[in-house]
Write a protein that binds this DNA or RNA. Structure first.
Lengths: 174, 174
DNA sequence: ACCTGAACACCGTTCAAGT
DNA sequence: ACCTGAACACCGTTCAAGT
């Protein structure tokens, strides 16, 4: 007789996927270790075999979310950079400040950073200059909180301004 | 016989002051209704006479924090605007996204906004243009999360860039 | 009017036990 | 090795009761 597939063994992948499903559907506020365990049809402590604590699991969930962003392929480097930032915002915009702090050091963060640095290198910026620009841009992209009464294009208005202002004041090799 | 002054009646002011003291000393993570009650030497539910729920109280605490920022008096409007943004960051930088959303509609938010609009009006921008610029600038100032490995001037590097980029692309009346 | 006290429905996490 | 189950020390908040 076949094993009940819904009762298959736990794994990091299955746990992260279930967590991501909860966050996508109901937001971070609805996410708890107990709710996650319920969704996996398992007792709360089972998850702790695979992740030391909630913090470690959330990092993995954030990394998975960041891993879903499709790297843009615009030919124009500025358009590519901007598209990357807009995607980063939708993928990472809901994570809290303490986790943003570590965002660049994850595999997913390095993937976004590499794509950004490639665009900036194409524009003629050296590594150090690109790093400064990227931090400012990503910080705005994932940090802009949104205010009551914001126009639809308010976020992009600031993003375009920051792109202009940050890129202009960098030492270019072009 | 004199009343024990430490047992004086509760009031919104006393509650908010105690809450602010906890947040200043130990951060938002350490703040809870139960911890606050303990600090006030009162039972947890006593605070609910003055604030409907934790959310309403936290709004009041944030407003009090914002109320503490001293409005800068630099003669140069750009320096005044930048100083205001740096102060706003230190005062409001730790509040979460959901509360940032409402920040502009508080008395404290309107005070900061009025000072910013005054600086921008002096620079020759009309109300609508000043509003767009201020939202972008404040959003960056309170939203920039900080990343591991940021240089000391990283935040200000982005802020200067945003000031340049946002102000340059606005329709000026000057 | 203002505060108490118990209670409810949640948390994250420990620990010892089961299989 | 992997999951259970109870337990601990927390939460925010309700409700009825005390003074």
């Amino acid at each position: 007789m076949a094993r009940d597939t819904s009762q298959q063994q736990l794994s990091p992948e299955r746990i992260v996927a279930a967590a991501l499903a909860i966050v996508d559907a109901h937001g971070w506020d609805a996410f708890s270790m107990r709710k996650l365990a319920e969704e996996l049809d398992v007792w709360p402590m089972a998850v702790y075999r695979y992740f030391r604590d909630k913090d470690e699991l959330v990092d993995a969930v954030v990394a998975a979310a960041a891993g879903r962003v499709e790297l843009p392929d615009d030919v124009d480097w500025r358009a590519r950079l901007k598209a990357l930032l807009v995607e980063a915002r939708t993928a990472l915009g809901t994570i809290d400040r303490d986790r943003s702090h570590r965002a660049l050091d994850t595999a997913a963060g390095r993937r976004l950073t590499a794509a950004a640095h490639a665009a900036l290198a194409e524009a003629g910026f050296d590594r150090r200059a690109a790093d400064r620009a990227w931090r400012a841009l990503l910080g705005y992209a994932i940090g802009y909180p949104g205010f009551a009464g914001d126009r639809r294009d308010q976020f992009e208005f600031g993003l375009d301004g920051l792109l202009d202002g940050v890129l202009v004041r960098l030492p270019s090799r072009a």
